[in-house]
């Protein structure tokens, strides 16, 4: 019986090994060599990794990556939850509202980038015009902070609805009896939120945080399309830094090491997500 299972699993295992395992091992092999395209590889052990962890550009992009992740979480999670709390629990309006909220989720990353790129352009975009009307100067290709916050807002616009939908589903699953009990106990609105809504949404929120966290680490299209990591390297997040090593740097060994570090960081986040989700099952 067990053998049969293995036989049946073989095609997918084979496919996986070709699509994931082999390339991964290749990258691991590359990362241990000095390797420029066309030249003969030279084994150098972990030197590429050591170099990467000493490389200020890499560390800075890693730092920016964590900062970006933290910022979007701090905005999207409370905002998504607040929106979910404001939505009506039932009624004819809830269908159209949920569809409207879902629209940004249907748009591919690069299209979101293009929309906001056009929106933020200094020559034809609406944003600079609006800001100048309000008396502010706004230029994404000159001011690092402007580019940075534009990307943050882009992500918030794109992904807050996901948090809202998750929280909304979570809220719907809380039995009404808890709120009735809170009323019986004369609990204030804040106490009700603190002791019923929040604890009951705990796992939904953990999942929302981890999903957003992982996605934030993989962001590439939006900053790349907006300013290609600029101005300077101000929006050069880990993904852009990594691809730049390959495309512009030609140092296959070094970029492989960077890719692997990047991969391990994402993997670690996946591991946390997996652990939390299995814990919920036990509960």
């Amino acid at each position: 019986m067990k053998n049969k299972v293995l036989v049946l699993l073989l095609p997918s295992l084979l496919l996986m090994s070709i699509s994931a395992f082999v390339p991964l091992m290749t990258v691991l092999n590359y990362s241990l060599h000095v390797l420029f395209s066309g030249s003969i590889p030279k084994y150098i052990g972990l030197e590429n990794y050591v170099n990467a962890l000493k490389d200020p550009a890499f560390l800075s992009s890693m730092g920016k990556q964590f900062l970006f992740c933290l910022e979007i979480l701090l905005i999207e999670i409370p905002m998504g939850l607040a929106l979910a709390l404001l939505l009506p629990k039932r009624g004819i309006m809830i269908g159209p509202i949920l569809v409207l909220l879902g629209i940004p989720l249907l748009i591919p990353w690069n299209v979101v980038g293009i929309i906001w790129r056009v929106f933020a352009r200094e020559d034809i975009g609406a944003l600079p015009v609006i800001f100048s009307k309000l008396g502010f100067f706004y230029n994404v290709s000159k001011v690092p902070a402007h580019a940075w916050w534009t990307i943050v807002i882009m992500d918030v616009w794109h992904w807050t609805p996901l948090v809202t939908l998750l929280c909304y589903a979570g809220l719907q699953a809380i039995p009404q009896e808890f709120y009735q009990a809170a009323r019986v106990d004369s609990a204030s609105k804040i106490a009700t939120f603190r002791y019923i809504t929040l604890p009951k949404l705990k796992y939904v929120l953990i999942i929302a945080v981890l999903l957003r966290c992982m996605d934030a680490f993989k962001i590439y299209d939006e900053p790349f399309i907006l300013t290609a990591g600029g101005p300077g390297t101000s929006t050069e997040l880990l993904s852009i830094f990594t691809s730049r090593q390959v495309i512009g740097g030609f140092n296959m060994g070094y970029s492989s090491a960077v890719s692997l570090i990047y991969f391990i960081v994402v993997l670690l986040l996946c591991y946390i997500l997996y652990t939390v989700m299995t814990k919920i099952g036990e509960h």
């Binding site: 039995p175 019986v184 106990d185 004369s186 019923i196 009951k200």
Partner: peptide, 26 residues
Amino acid sequence: IGMLFQFPVVYDSMNVFNNLAFPLRN
């Protein structure tokens, strides 16, 4: 009033003492 429902409604994030104290503190 006090009320009991079809399933036990208790505040999971509070211990038993705080659960009992909740209506008084409110």
